[in-house]
Design a protein around this nucleic acid. Sequence first.
DNA 1: AAAAAAACTAGACACATGTCCAGAAAAAAT
DNA 2: ATTTTTTCTGGACATGTGTCTAGTTTTTTT
Lengths: 206, 206
Amino acid sequence: MGKLVARAAAKEAKREAKKRALAASAIEALKCYGYANTTLRDIAAESDLSLGMLHYYFENKEQLLIYCVRLYKEAFAAEIGGRLAGITDRQAQIRALAGGLAASIIDDADTHRLWYDIRNQALFDPVFKPVVAEIEASLIDLVRPLAESPDDSAQISVLYGAIDGVFRHLLERHLSGVHSSADDLSHAFCNLLGATPPSAPPSPQG
Amino acid sequence: MGKLVARAAAKEAKREAKKRALAASAIEALKCYGYANTTLRDIAAESDLSLGMLHYYFENKEQLLIYCVRLYKEAFAAEIGGRLAGITDRQAQIRALAGGLAASIIDDADTHRLWYDIRNQALFDPVFKPVVAEIEASLIDLVRPLAESPDDSAQISVLYGAIDGVFRHLLERHLSGVHSSADDLSHAFCNLLGATPPSAPPSPQG
DNA sequence: AAAAAAACTAGACACATGTCCAGAAAAAAT
DNA sequence: ATTTTTTCTGGACATGTGTCTAGTTTTTTT
Protein backbone atom coordinates (compact mmCIF):
# COMPACT_ATOMS: atom_id res chain seq x y z
CA MET A 1 0.00 0.00 0.00
CA GLY A 2 1.00 3.65 -0.35
CA LYS A 3 0.52 4.44 3.29
CA LEU A 4 4.12 5.25 3.89
CA VAL A 5 4.52 7.32 0.79
CA ALA A 6 1.30 9.18 1.63
CA ARG A 7 2.70 9.97 5.03
CA ALA A 8 5.96 11.12 3.56
CA ALA A 9 4.09 13.32 1.15
CA ALA A 10 2.04 14.83 3.96
CA LYS A 11 5.21 15.55 5.88
CA GLU A 12 6.71 17.17 2.88
CA ALA A 13 3.59 19.23 2.27
CA LYS A 14 3.55 20.41 5.85
CA ARG A 15 7.18 21.35 5.64
CA GLU A 16 6.57 23.22 2.41
CA ALA A 17 3.72 25.12 4.01
CA LYS A 18 6.00 26.13 6.83
CA LYS A 19 8.63 27.24 4.36
CA ARG A 20 6.11 29.34 2.53
CA ALA A 21 4.96 30.98 5.74
CA LEU A 22 8.51 31.66 6.71
CA ALA A 23 9.27 33.08 3.29
CA ALA A 24 6.23 35.32 3.50
CA SER A 25 7.53 36.77 6.73
CA ALA A 26 11.00 37.05 5.28
CA ILE A 27 9.68 39.06 2.37
CA GLU A 28 8.14 41.53 4.79
CA ALA A 29 11.55 42.16 6.28
CA LEU A 30 13.39 42.12 2.97
CA LYS A 31 10.98 44.59 1.42
CA CYS A 32 11.95 47.19 3.97
CA TYR A 33 15.70 46.93 4.08
CA GLY A 34 16.73 45.19 0.89
CA TYR A 35 18.77 42.04 0.60
CA ALA A 36 22.14 43.28 1.76
CA ASN A 37 20.77 45.14 4.74
CA THR A 38 18.40 42.50 6.02
CA THR A 39 19.97 40.16 8.54
CA LEU A 40 18.80 36.69 9.34
CA ARG A 41 17.99 38.02 12.77
CA ASP A 42 15.62 40.54 11.23
CA ILE A 43 13.88 37.75 9.39
CA ALA A 44 13.77 35.56 12.47
CA ALA A 45 12.19 38.38 14.44
CA GLU A 46 9.65 39.07 11.71
CA SER A 47 8.67 35.41 11.53
CA ASP A 48 8.53 34.84 15.30
CA LEU A 49 11.03 32.09 14.90
CA SER A 50 14.45 31.53 16.35
CA LEU A 51 17.57 32.14 14.35
CA GLY A 52 18.45 28.49 14.12
CA MET A 53 15.15 27.65 12.46
CA LEU A 54 16.10 29.54 9.35
CA HIS A 55 18.91 27.11 8.71
CA TYR A 56 16.63 24.27 9.56
CA TYR A 57 14.36 25.14 6.66
CA PHE A 58 16.82 26.77 4.31
CA GLU A 59 20.39 25.93 3.54
CA ASN A 60 21.53 29.52 3.80
CA LYS A 61 20.51 33.10 3.36
CA GLU A 62 20.85 32.97 -0.39
CA GLN A 63 18.58 29.96 -0.78
CA LEU A 64 16.01 31.58 1.45
CA LEU A 65 16.03 34.65 -0.71
CA ILE A 66 15.75 32.64 -3.89
CA TYR A 67 12.75 30.88 -2.47
CA CYS A 68 11.18 34.21 -1.57
CA VAL A 69 11.72 35.67 -4.99
CA ARG A 70 10.13 32.69 -6.68
CA LEU A 71 7.13 33.12 -4.44
CA TYR A 72 6.82 36.75 -5.42
CA LYS A 73 7.23 36.01 -9.09
CA GLU A 74 4.43 33.50 -9.15
CA ALA A 75 2.08 36.05 -7.65
CA PHE A 76 3.01 38.91 -9.92
CA ALA A 77 3.22 36.98 -13.15
CA ALA A 78 -0.09 35.33 -12.35
CA GLU A 79 -1.67 38.69 -11.62
CA ILE A 80 -0.57 40.25 -14.89
CA GLY A 81 -1.11 37.06 -16.84
CA GLY A 82 -4.64 36.88 -15.52
CA ARG A 83 -5.39 40.37 -16.70
CA LEU A 84 -4.16 39.57 -20.19
CA ALA A 85 -5.79 36.17 -20.47
CA GLY A 86 -8.26 35.86 -23.27
CA ILE A 87 -7.70 39.30 -24.69
CA THR A 88 -6.80 39.21 -28.37
CA ASP A 89 -7.26 42.79 -29.47
CA ARG A 90 -3.91 44.50 -29.38
CA GLN A 91 -5.15 47.84 -28.09
CA ALA A 92 -7.10 46.07 -25.37
CA GLN A 93 -4.02 44.07 -24.45
CA ILE A 94 -2.02 47.23 -24.10
CA ARG A 95 -4.66 48.87 -21.96
CA ALA A 96 -4.92 45.81 -19.74
CA LEU A 97 -1.18 45.55 -19.30
CA ALA A 98 -0.84 49.27 -18.67
CA GLY A 99 -3.56 49.17 -16.06
CA GLY A 100 -2.00 46.18 -14.33
CA LEU A 101 1.45 47.68 -14.23
CA ALA A 102 0.13 51.02 -13.01
CA ALA A 103 -1.85 49.40 -10.22
CA SER A 104 1.13 47.32 -9.17
CA ILE A 105 3.38 50.35 -8.92
CA ILE A 106 0.98 51.83 -6.43
CA ASP A 107 0.04 48.68 -4.55
CA ASP A 108 3.23 46.64 -4.54
CA ALA A 109 5.95 49.25 -4.70
CA ASP A 110 8.05 47.70 -1.97
CA THR A 111 7.89 44.24 -3.48
CA HIS A 112 9.05 45.49 -6.83
CA ARG A 113 11.85 47.39 -5.20
CA LEU A 114 12.96 44.10 -3.73
CA TRP A 115 12.80 42.46 -7.13
CA TYR A 116 15.05 45.10 -8.62
CA ASP A 117 17.39 44.64 -5.70
CA ILE A 118 17.68 40.94 -6.35
CA ARG A 119 18.05 41.39 -10.08
CA ASN A 120 20.86 43.75 -9.34
CA GLN A 121 22.52 41.32 -6.96
CA ALA A 122 22.48 38.81 -9.77
CA LEU A 123 24.72 41.11 -11.78
CA PHE A 124 27.45 40.41 -9.24
CA ASP A 125 26.56 37.17 -7.52
CA PRO A 126 26.11 34.22 -9.89
CA VAL A 127 24.02 32.38 -7.31
CA PHE A 128 21.05 34.55 -8.15
CA LYS A 129 21.38 34.40 -11.89
CA PRO A 130 19.19 31.33 -12.45
CA VAL A 131 16.19 32.68 -10.53
CA VAL A 132 16.47 36.07 -12.11
CA ALA A 133 16.78 34.56 -15.55
CA GLU A 134 13.78 32.37 -14.90
CA ILE A 135 11.63 35.22 -13.65
CA GLU A 136 12.74 37.54 -16.39
CA ALA A 137 11.93 34.89 -18.98
CA SER A 138 8.40 34.65 -17.65
CA LEU A 139 8.06 38.42 -17.72
CA ILE A 140 9.29 38.47 -21.29
CA ASP A 141 6.70 35.87 -22.16
CA LEU A 142 4.08 38.13 -20.67
CA VAL A 143 5.11 40.87 -23.03
CA ARG A 144 5.69 38.76 -26.09
CA PRO A 145 2.12 38.81 -27.44
CA LEU A 146 2.39 42.58 -27.74
CA ALA A 147 5.19 42.36 -30.26
CA GLU A 148 4.42 42.48 -33.93
CA SER A 149 6.95 39.74 -34.62
CA PRO A 150 6.94 37.58 -31.48
CA ASP A 151 9.83 35.52 -32.85
CA ASP A 152 12.24 38.41 -33.39
CA SER A 153 14.31 38.19 -30.22
CA ALA A 154 15.94 41.56 -30.79
CA GLN A 155 12.54 43.18 -31.02
CA ILE A 156 11.38 41.42 -27.87
CA SER A 157 14.46 42.60 -26.03
CA VAL A 158 13.74 46.18 -26.94
CA LEU A 159 10.09 45.83 -26.04
CA TYR A 160 10.75 44.23 -22.68
CA GLY A 161 13.59 46.59 -21.88
CA ALA A 162 11.48 49.61 -22.67
CA ILE A 163 8.46 48.50 -20.65
CA ASP A 164 10.61 47.44 -17.74
CA GLY A 165 12.60 50.65 -17.85
CA VAL A 166 9.51 52.82 -17.79
CA PHE A 167 8.07 50.69 -15.03
CA ARG A 168 11.22 50.97 -12.98
CA HIS A 169 11.53 54.69 -13.47
CA LEU A 170 7.91 55.33 -12.54
CA LEU A 171 8.41 53.08 -9.53
CA GLU A 172 11.45 55.05 -8.51
CA ARG A 173 9.50 58.28 -8.74
CA HIS A 174 6.66 56.78 -6.75
CA LEU A 175 9.04 55.61 -4.04
CA SER A 176 10.59 59.06 -3.93
CA GLY A 177 7.24 60.54 -3.01
CA VAL A 178 6.24 61.74 -6.47
CA HIS A 179 2.84 60.09 -6.51
CA SER A 180 1.05 60.00 -9.83
CA SER A 181 -2.46 58.70 -10.18
CA ALA A 182 -3.06 55.22 -11.51
CA ASP A 183 -4.49 56.82 -14.62
CA ASP A 184 -1.40 58.89 -15.24
CA LEU A 185 0.84 55.88 -14.76
CA SER A 186 -1.33 53.83 -17.05
CA HIS A 187 -1.23 56.55 -19.68
CA ALA A 188 2.54 56.49 -19.58
CA PHE A 189 2.58 52.86 -20.61
CA CYS A 190 -0.07 53.41 -23.25
CA ASN A 191 1.96 56.30 -24.53
CA LEU A 192 4.98 54.07 -24.77
CA LEU A 193 3.21 51.16 -26.42
CA GLY A 194 0.56 52.84 -28.52
CA ALA A 195 2.69 55.27 -30.39
CA THR A 196 6.36 56.20 -30.44
CA PRO A 197 7.70 57.46 -27.09
CA PRO A 198 6.17 60.92 -27.46
CA SER A 199 2.82 62.08 -28.79
CA ALA A 200 -0.63 60.55 -28.99
CA PRO A 201 -2.08 59.74 -32.43
CA PRO A 202 -0.81 61.90 -35.27
CA SER A 203 0.99 65.07 -34.30
CA PRO A 204 1.31 68.35 -36.21
CA GLN A 205 5.07 68.39 -36.56
CA GLY A 206 6.90 65.63 -38.41
CA MET B 1 49.40 89.53 -0.41
CA GLY B 2 47.71 86.32 -1.60
CA LYS B 3 50.70 84.15 -0.93
CA LEU B 4 49.04 82.26 1.86
CA VAL B 5 45.78 81.75 0.06
CA ALA B 6 47.67 80.60 -3.02
CA ARG B 7 49.47 78.06 -0.90
CA ALA B 8 46.25 76.92 0.67
CA ALA B 9 44.72 76.53 -2.77
CA ALA B 10 47.71 74.50 -3.95
CA LYS B 11 47.37 72.28 -0.93
CA GLU B 12 43.73 71.80 -1.61
CA ALA B 13 44.35 71.05 -5.26
CA LYS B 14 46.97 68.49 -4.36
CA ARG B 15 44.63 66.88 -1.92
CA GLU B 16 41.89 66.80 -4.52
CA ALA B 17 44.23 65.18 -7.00
CA LYS B 18 45.02 62.50 -4.46
CA LYS B 19 41.35 61.97 -3.79
CA ARG B 20 40.68 61.55 -7.47
CA ALA B 21 43.49 59.04 -7.81
CA LEU B 22 42.20 57.15 -4.83
CA ALA B 23 38.67 57.21 -6.21
CA ALA B 24 39.92 55.93 -9.55
CA SER B 25 41.47 52.96 -7.82
CA ALA B 26 38.37 52.48 -5.73
CA ILE B 27 36.24 52.30 -8.83
CA GLU B 28 38.41 49.51 -10.13
CA ALA B 29 37.62 47.48 -7.06
CA LEU B 30 33.97 48.49 -6.88
CA LYS B 31 33.42 47.59 -10.52
CA CYS B 32 34.30 44.00 -9.82
CA TYR B 33 32.45 43.26 -6.62
CA GLY B 34 29.74 45.89 -6.34
CA TYR B 35 29.21 48.27 -3.47
CA ALA B 36 28.04 45.86 -0.80
CA ASN B 37 30.72 43.30 -1.51
CA THR B 38 33.66 45.63 -1.78
CA THR B 39 35.45 46.19 1.51
CA LEU B 40 37.59 49.16 2.36
CA ARG B 41 40.45 46.72 2.51
CA ASP B 42 39.85 45.78 -1.10
CA ILE B 43 39.98 49.43 -2.04
CA ALA B 44 43.08 50.02 0.04
CA ALA B 45 44.81 47.12 -1.65
CA GLU B 46 43.79 48.33 -5.09
CA SER B 47 45.08 51.81 -4.39
CA ASP B 48 48.35 50.72 -2.77
CA LEU B 49 47.38 52.65 0.30
CA SER B 50 46.86 51.67 3.88
CA LEU B 51 43.42 51.22 5.32
CA GLY B 52 43.68 54.28 7.52
CA MET B 53 44.32 56.53 4.56
CA LEU B 54 40.81 56.02 3.26
CA HIS B 55 39.41 57.70 6.33
CA TYR B 56 42.04 60.35 6.05
CA TYR B 57 40.68 61.41 2.68
CA PHE B 58 37.05 60.41 3.02
CA GLU B 59 34.72 60.61 5.94
CA ASN B 60 33.42 57.10 5.45
CA LYS B 61 32.73 54.43 2.90
CA GLU B 62 29.55 56.05 1.71
CA GLN B 63 31.18 59.40 1.01
CA LEU B 64 33.95 57.66 -0.86
CA LEU B 65 31.45 55.91 -3.03
CA ILE B 66 29.52 59.09 -3.68
CA TYR B 67 32.72 60.75 -4.78
CA CYS B 68 33.46 57.85 -7.10
CA VAL B 69 30.04 57.90 -8.68
CA ARG B 70 30.27 61.62 -9.39
CA LEU B 71 33.60 61.01 -11.07
CA TYR B 72 32.08 58.36 -13.29
CA LYS B 73 29.08 60.46 -14.14
CA GLU B 74 31.17 63.35 -15.36
CA ALA B 75 33.00 61.05 -17.73
CA PHE B 76 29.96 59.30 -19.13
CA ALA B 77 27.72 62.34 -19.46
CA ALA B 78 30.56 64.23 -21.10
CA GLU B 79 31.17 61.38 -23.51
CA ILE B 80 27.57 61.16 -24.61
CA GLY B 81 27.05 64.90 -24.50
CA GLY B 82 30.06 65.35 -26.72
CA ARG B 83 28.66 63.00 -29.29
CA LEU B 84 25.39 64.90 -29.39
CA ALA B 85 26.89 68.39 -29.35
CA GLY B 86 26.03 70.47 -32.37
CA ILE B 87 23.75 67.92 -33.96
CA THR B 88 20.32 69.36 -34.71
CA ASP B 89 18.80 66.81 -37.04
CA ARG B 90 16.67 64.48 -35.04
CA GLN B 91 17.55 61.34 -36.95
CA ALA B 92 21.22 62.18 -36.65
CA GLN B 93 20.79 62.78 -32.93
CA ILE B 94 19.21 59.39 -32.53
CA ARG B 95 21.96 57.70 -34.48
CA ALA B 96 24.64 59.47 -32.48
CA LEU B 97 23.03 58.58 -29.18
CA ALA B 98 22.44 54.99 -30.24
CA GLY B 99 26.04 54.64 -31.32
CA GLY B 100 27.33 56.11 -28.09
CA LEU B 101 25.19 53.90 -25.89
CA ALA B 102 26.06 50.82 -27.89
CA ALA B 103 29.77 51.51 -27.65
CA SER B 104 29.51 52.13 -23.94
CA ILE B 105 27.76 48.85 -23.32
CA ILE B 106 30.71 47.08 -24.88
CA ASP B 107 33.50 49.26 -23.52
CA ASP B 108 32.29 50.25 -20.06
CA ALA B 109 30.06 47.38 -19.06
CA ASP B 110 31.51 47.06 -15.58
CA THR B 111 31.22 50.75 -14.85
CA HIS B 112 27.58 50.81 -15.81
CA ARG B 113 26.93 47.76 -13.71
CA LEU B 114 28.32 49.72 -10.80
CA TRP B 115 26.07 52.65 -11.60
CA TYR B 116 23.02 50.44 -11.54
CA ASP B 117 24.21 49.03 -8.27
CA ILE B 118 24.44 52.46 -6.71
CA ARG B 119 21.14 53.56 -8.13
CA ASN B 120 19.63 50.51 -6.56
CA GLN B 121 21.25 51.20 -3.21
CA ALA B 122 19.62 54.60 -3.32
CA LEU B 123 16.23 52.91 -3.32
CA PHE B 124 16.97 51.75 0.21
CA ASP B 125 19.65 54.06 1.59
CA PRO B 126 18.71 57.77 1.53
CA VAL B 127 22.36 58.77 1.69
CA PHE B 128 22.76 57.95 -1.98
CA LYS B 129 19.61 59.61 -3.18
CA PRO B 130 21.07 63.05 -3.85
CA VAL B 131 23.90 61.80 -6.06
CA VAL B 132 21.67 59.45 -7.94
CA ALA B 133 19.08 62.16 -8.45
CA GLU B 134 21.76 64.52 -9.67
CA ILE B 135 23.21 62.03 -12.11
CA GLU B 136 19.85 60.91 -13.34
CA ALA B 137 18.84 64.52 -13.91
CA SER B 138 21.89 65.02 -16.10
CA LEU B 139 21.08 61.85 -18.02
CA ILE B 140 17.55 63.04 -18.52
CA ASP B 141 18.87 66.32 -19.85
CA LEU B 142 20.93 64.34 -22.32
CA VAL B 143 17.80 62.71 -23.62
CA ARG B 144 15.52 65.72 -23.49
CA PRO B 145 16.36 67.13 -26.94
CA LEU B 146 15.05 63.92 -28.47
CA ALA B 147 11.56 64.52 -27.17
CA GLU B 148 8.99 66.19 -29.34
CA SER B 149 7.75 68.22 -26.38
CA PRO B 150 10.82 68.75 -24.18
CA ASP B 151 8.66 70.40 -21.53
CA ASP B 152 6.21 67.55 -21.05
CA SER B 153 7.69 65.87 -17.99
CA ALA B 154 5.52 62.79 -18.36
CA GLN B 155 6.76 62.32 -21.89
CA ILE B 156 10.36 62.79 -20.79
CA SER B 157 9.91 60.21 -18.05
CA VAL B 158 8.68 57.66 -20.55
CA LEU B 159 11.46 58.48 -22.98
CA TYR B 160 14.20 58.28 -20.38
CA GLY B 161 12.75 55.18 -18.78
CA ALA B 162 12.51 53.40 -22.09
CA ILE B 163 16.03 54.24 -23.22
CA ASP B 164 17.47 53.39 -19.85
CA GLY B 165 15.53 50.17 -19.67
CA VAL B 166 16.71 49.00 -23.06
CA PHE B 167 20.24 50.03 -22.17
CA ARG B 168 20.10 48.13 -18.92
CA HIS B 169 18.64 45.03 -20.48
CA LEU B 170 21.19 44.97 -23.27
CA LEU B 171 23.89 45.51 -20.68
CA GLU B 172 22.58 42.60 -18.67
CA ARG B 173 22.67 40.37 -21.72
CA HIS B 174 26.16 41.52 -22.55
CA LEU B 175 27.36 40.81 -19.02
CA SER B 176 25.76 37.38 -19.20
CA GLY B 177 27.94 36.52 -22.15
CA VAL B 178 25.40 37.19 -24.89
CA HIS B 179 27.62 39.47 -26.94
CA SER B 180 25.93 41.42 -29.70
CA SER B 181 27.85 43.55 -32.13
CA ALA B 182 27.96 47.30 -31.65
CA ASP B 183 25.84 47.58 -34.76
CA ASP B 184 23.16 45.30 -33.41
CA LEU B 185 23.08 47.16 -30.11
CA SER B 186 22.91 50.45 -31.93
CA HIS B 187 20.07 49.20 -34.08
CA ALA B 188 18.13 48.28 -30.98
CA PHE B 189 18.17 51.88 -29.81
CA CYS B 190 17.34 53.18 -33.26
CA ASN B 191 14.50 50.74 -33.40
CA LEU B 192 13.22 52.04 -30.10
CA LEU B 193 13.57 55.71 -30.95
CA GLY B 194 12.94 55.80 -34.65
CA ALA B 195 9.62 54.05 -34.71
CA THR B 196 7.40 52.37 -32.15
CA PRO B 197 9.00 49.43 -30.33
CA PRO B 198 8.65 47.08 -33.29
CA SER B 199 8.87 47.70 -37.03
CA ALA B 200 10.73 50.21 -39.15
CA PRO B 201 8.85 53.05 -40.88
CA PRO B 202 5.25 52.32 -41.85
CA SER B 203 4.00 48.77 -41.37
CA PRO B 204 1.23 46.89 -43.17
CA GLN B 205 -0.95 46.15 -40.19
CA GLY B 206 -2.42 48.96 -38.11
C1' DA C 1 69.01 73.19 9.97
C1' DA C 2 65.04 73.24 13.04
C1' DA C 3 60.28 73.19 13.58
C1' DA C 4 55.76 72.45 12.09
C1' DA C 5 52.46 70.32 9.34
C1' DA C 6 50.90 66.89 6.41
C1' DA C 7 50.87 62.10 4.78
C1' DC C 8 51.00 57.68 6.02
C1' DT C 9 51.30 52.88 8.63
C1' DA C 10 50.09 49.25 11.63
C1' DG C 11 47.23 47.55 14.52
C1' DA C 12 43.50 47.44 17.83
C1' DC C 13 38.52 47.78 18.87
C1' DA C 14 33.79 47.09 18.67
C1' DC C 15 30.31 45.22 16.53
C1' DA C 16 27.46 42.83 13.23
C1' DT C 17 26.45 38.66 10.98
C1' DG C 18 26.18 33.94 8.85
C1' DT C 19 26.73 29.50 10.51
C1' DC C 20 26.45 25.74 13.48
C1' DC C 21 25.53 22.70 17.58
C1' DA C 22 23.88 20.40 21.95
C1' DG C 23 20.01 19.66 23.88
C1' DA C 24 14.97 20.65 25.18
C1' DA C 25 10.20 20.43 23.84
C1' DA C 26 6.61 18.78 21.04
C1' DA C 27 4.58 15.67 17.80
C1' DA C 28 4.10 11.32 15.69
C1' DA C 29 4.56 6.46 15.38
C1' DT C 30 4.77 2.02 17.44
C1' DA D 1 2.90 4.18 27.33
C1' DT D 2 7.16 4.20 25.05
C1' DT D 3 10.06 5.17 21.51
C1' DT D 4 11.34 7.67 17.65
C1' DT D 5 11.20 11.49 14.80
C1' DT D 6 10.52 16.13 14.07
C1' DT D 7 10.56 20.82 15.51
C1' DC D 8 12.53 24.30 17.97
C1' DT D 9 15.64 27.16 21.31
C1' DG D 10 19.48 29.53 23.02
C1' DG D 11 23.82 30.51 22.65
C1' DA D 12 28.56 29.90 20.97
C1' DC D 13 31.90 30.49 17.24
C1' DA D 14 34.52 32.38 13.60
C1' DT D 15 34.93 35.78 10.58
C1' DG D 16 34.53 40.06 8.22
C1' DT D 17 34.32 44.94 8.45
C1' DG D 18 33.99 49.98 9.36
C1' DT D 19 36.15 52.96 12.38
C1' DC D 20 39.59 55.03 15.11
C1' DT D 21 44.08 56.02 17.53
C1' DA D 22 49.01 56.26 18.58
C1' DG D 23 52.98 56.76 16.53
C1' DT D 24 56.27 57.14 12.33
C1' DT D 25 57.92 59.03 8.16
C1' DT D 26 57.94 62.43 4.79
C1' DT D 27 57.23 66.94 3.16
C1' DT D 28 56.89 71.71 3.74
C1' DT D 29 57.73 76.03 6.00
C1' DT D 30 60.54 79.24 8.57
